[in-house]
Write a protein that binds this DNA or RNA. Structure first.
Lengths: 219, 219
DNA sequence: TGTACATCAGTGAACGCGCGTTCACTGATGTAC
DNA sequence: TGTACATCAGTGAACGCGCGTTCACTGATGTAC
């Protein structure tokens, strides 16, 4: 009745409490890692009883899944927005790096150590491929489709025969290769940086990353 | 008395039980991840009482630290041995990849999501730099010190001023750069592969990795 | 070879704790007539 | 506008559980004379 296109007050309230729960969940993850995430502890922080949270999340696992979904969603939106605003591969890398540095635990929730036995629902893998789609577009834009000059590597040839995953994307094998290199190099530098493996080495990871992306295959 | 250079029977027994404990610990990690590692559960598996394990490890944390140490030690030895047997960078990458694939959880214990608040003791970081030392030697060997032809990148210049961490290694900035690229590219492909992020993409990660290492800077 | 003593692996009971989750319930908020 | 009813957020008690860790102890193994 009230506000036809919107939500009822109850729905708005629900969404708000759900959001607050997630917020505290992220806080706990930041403090002590995913393993320490506890519904009871969140409830205590919010000044309510443990069982109350079960009105909002069916289980601890569902909450974590939702956090993972949100993380992917946020990354996909960030990357998409940047690309649509004209960002090239370097700018894209910068945006992703800042996204990750602003909340390393969120990055690791997605790209860190996998939880044995956990399998993400389909809609999440779909979001993750949105990210890859943007990378493919960005890589396709830089080498205008007709780069006959760059040599065809064995891996490019291999990709020709294994490109089903890029279904619907009119990308050349070289472009697929380029996107994969972009992704893996970015992740290589970023995850080691965030995990602190460069601690003690005084160099600037940003410069290394830029350098790594300067020599992407056929771009 | 018996066996002057060796251990007493008691010492041997202790070492044996410690090893068995660690073995079960790895098993638990493989099954349900580090968070699920429990001293009581290990004791039960070994047919003894929980408190008995405190004869061998002062705490759960000490056990985990020991596992981390062993993982680094194993990797460092593997890499060192391969290099001393004449392995080049490709062979080295292959050895590391096989080491990781043979026990992904061990790899992730080292290079995966960091545990908030955990700080490795000094001897462990020392072992980790043994690995880097081998990489530096291997990268130094390929470009015989006098590669004047390769252009000096901004990152190389930056490294000239931030090379304290490679103290004692007579490596050029280009070699440092090369080793860092090797490490980050390897880790980029490997960790995404092991975490299952290539699932659904049909390509062979090994080919991607080989391709990635083919174009290391100044090598 | 035998006895007296010290070392030390392993036990069982107990501690306090926090966890995820269920259940029957109260009380407030919204809906229908 | 008022009354009757349905929805649903949140409570408190309770469940069973496994955790890390301590402690006082038994009993076997090794050592010294």
């Amino acid at each position: 009745m009230t506000d036809p296109g919107g939500q009822s007050p109850r729905e708005r309230y629900r969404a708000q409490v759900r959001a607050e729960i997630k917020q505290h969940a992220w806080g706990q993850i930041a403090t002590a890692g995913v393993p320490a995430l506890s519904l009871n502890a969140i409830a205590k922080q919010m000044g309510m009883s443990g069982p109350a949270l079960y009105r909002y999340f069916a289980s601890r696992d569902e909450l974590i899944t939702e956090l993972i979904r949100d993380a992917y969603r946020s990354l996909a939106d960030t990357v998409r927005t940047a690309f649509d605003s004209g960002a090239d591969l370097y700018a894209l890398a910068g945006v992703i790096r800042e996204w990750a540095r602003s909340d390393p635990h969120r990055y690791f929730l997605i790209y860190g150590t996998p939880v044995p036995g956990y399998h993400a629902p389909d809609d999440i893998t779909a979001i993750s491929s949105e990210v890859m789609a943007v990378l493919l577009e960005a890589c396709g834009a830089v080498s205008p489709d007709s780069s006959v000059d760059s040599p065809v590597t064995p891996f490019d040839a291999h990709l020709e025969n294994h490109r089903e995953w890029a279904d619907g994307h009119p990308a050349t094998a070289a472009t697929l290769h380029s996107a994969l290199s972009f992704w893996t190099r970015l992740h290589g530098v970023l995850s080691l940086e965030l995990a602190g493996h460069f601690t003690g080495m005084a160099f600037d990871p940003e410069l290394l990353m830029t350098e790594e992306l300067k020599n992407l295959p056929s771009s």
